[in-house]
Amino acid sequence: MIDGLMQYEFLQNAFLTGIIIGIIAPLLGVFIVVRRLSLIADALSHVTLAGIAASLLLEKKFLGLSGLNPLYMGMVFSVGGSLFIEKLRGVYKHYQELAIPIILSGGIGLSVIFISMADGFNTDIFSYLFGSVSAVSRLDLWTILVISVFVILIVVLLYKELFLLSFDEEHAKASGMSVKSLHFIFIVMVALVIAASMRIVGILLVSSLMTIPVAASMRIAKGFKQTIFYSILFGEISVIGGLVISYYADLAPGGVIVVIAVCILILTIFSKKMMAARSA
């Protein structure tokens, strides 16, 4: 495998991308989980799929657009979807969760239309659904790197504001913070990270990388910073382990990554129980 990494650019791309999203997906995931927005990640990933399908369709119908990177269209759709969710949450103030099924099914509906217009599924779409080691281009890697630097910078600079927003929104408002604009920045970051992650984990499994490592981390961490640290650690173990195994066993990496993450989660649940039993 080391030889392969030295030799093949596609492997380097996949691993570097994997390592990057292993940081940013769980990093934002912590804020998503504690704010009880886990399902928003799911809804947005389906909107991203619609963007990718639209991009593939355009590529097929207009040969002139063959250089179009589906990642960009995916991002545009994802960010658009996130803004639409916010709009819906404002319209249905007392039924805020309603925004999620609307966006989610709307995203799938659009995707299916675009895919069937492009004469059905092919391997390309499959790799977007479940991730792929070989599909990451150098351009994807650079795009994802830029997004990640942006996201990490924002999270570091606005850490205390994001913490307060997550812990106690009312108090954030009462202390004069601009809660609306902060939430807007946050949801756009989520949309970008989802679009960035889908190459490796796949659309259908993106939200898992944002939630499962966090769920495991919350079992054992003391405090918020530790929760972030363990989430990223578990995320990295899952992504790197998943890529290695899927490379050797020729499996879709998304599936293997999620299964490893779930195994870590189960371990943390049992280790906590065992520790409690020992100290009792």
Partner: peptide, 16 residues
């Protein structure tokens, strides 16, 4: 269930 220590919660009072 919010994963934050007493220290972190009190610190958040200094945000603005």
């Amino acid at each position: 269930g919010f994963p934050a220590t007493v220290y972190e919660v009190v610190s958040s009072g200094l945000t603005t």
